[in-house]
Amino acid sequence: MTMGRRDAVTCGGCLVSAVGAAGAVLAWGMSGRTQRHLGNGFENNGMDLGVLYTELPFVFLSGAVAPAAVWALGAWLLGRRRRSDLHA
């Protein structure tokens, strides 16, 4: 891979990771279960702010790591296929 192409692949992976993390946190925050824990129940019954430090970090990390891993696997497979085409 040329240097400019490698930079574009790296930038794309970072972008996919950031969008995945933001999307995961947004989806987690909008779920009914999370809303109940954060106080949208009847008169704040069942409010549990512990989800912010027990669940939120895992949601953020999984949202960032999963898309980046898929992106990296795809980039590796495409790079490998292109190298094999050059040697054929």
Rank of each mutant, 00 (worst) to 15 (best):
M1I: 03
M1G: 11
T2S: 14
M3F: 12
M3Q: 08
M3L: 10
G4R: 14
D7Y: 15
A8H: 11
A8E: 12
V9L: 05
V9K: 01
T10R: 14
G12M: 09
G13D: 05
L15K: 09
S17N: 03
S17Q: 04
V19C: 03
V19S: 01
G20R: 02
G20T: 04
G20L: 01
A21Y: 07
A22F: 13
G23W: 14
A24L: 02
A24D: 00
V25C: 07
V25L: 15
L26W: 12
L26S: 09
L26A: 15
L26T: 08
A27I: 07
A27Q: 04
W28C: 14
W28G: 07
M30G: 04
M30H: 04
G32M: 09
T34G: 03
T34P: 02
Q35W: 02
R36M: 13
H37W: 09
L38E: 00
G39V: 09
G39A: 12
N40V: 00
G41Y: 02
G41W: 04
F42T: 05
F42Q: 05
F42M: 06
F42H: 07
E43W: 09
N45Q: 13
G46T: 08
G46K: 02
G46A: 12
G46F: 07
M47W: 07
D48S: 04
L49R: 12
L49A: 11
L49W: 15
L52P: 01
L52V: 03
T54V: 15
T54K: 14
T54H: 14
E55A: 05
L56Y: 15
L56D: 08
L56K: 12
P57C: 05
F58P: 00
F58M: 07
F60E: 07
L61E: 03
S62Y: 07
S62K: 11
G63D: 07
G63E: 04
G63S: 08
G63K: 11
A64G: 03
A64T: 06
A64Q: 04
V65F: 13
V65T: 08
A66D: 01
A66G: 02
P67D: 13
A69H: 00
V70P: 10
V70G: 12
A72F: 12
L73G: 13
L73V: 15
L73E: 02
A75P: 08
A75I: 09
W76E: 01
W76C: 00
L77P: 09
L77Q: 13
L77C: 09
L78E: 03
L78H: 10
L78K: 09
R81G: 05
R81T: 08
R81I: 09
R81K: 04
R81A: 13
R81L: 06
R81H: 15
R82N: 10
R83E: 09
S84D: 14
S84N: 15
S84T: 11
D85Q: 11
L86V: 13
L86S: 09
L86D: 13
A88N: 10
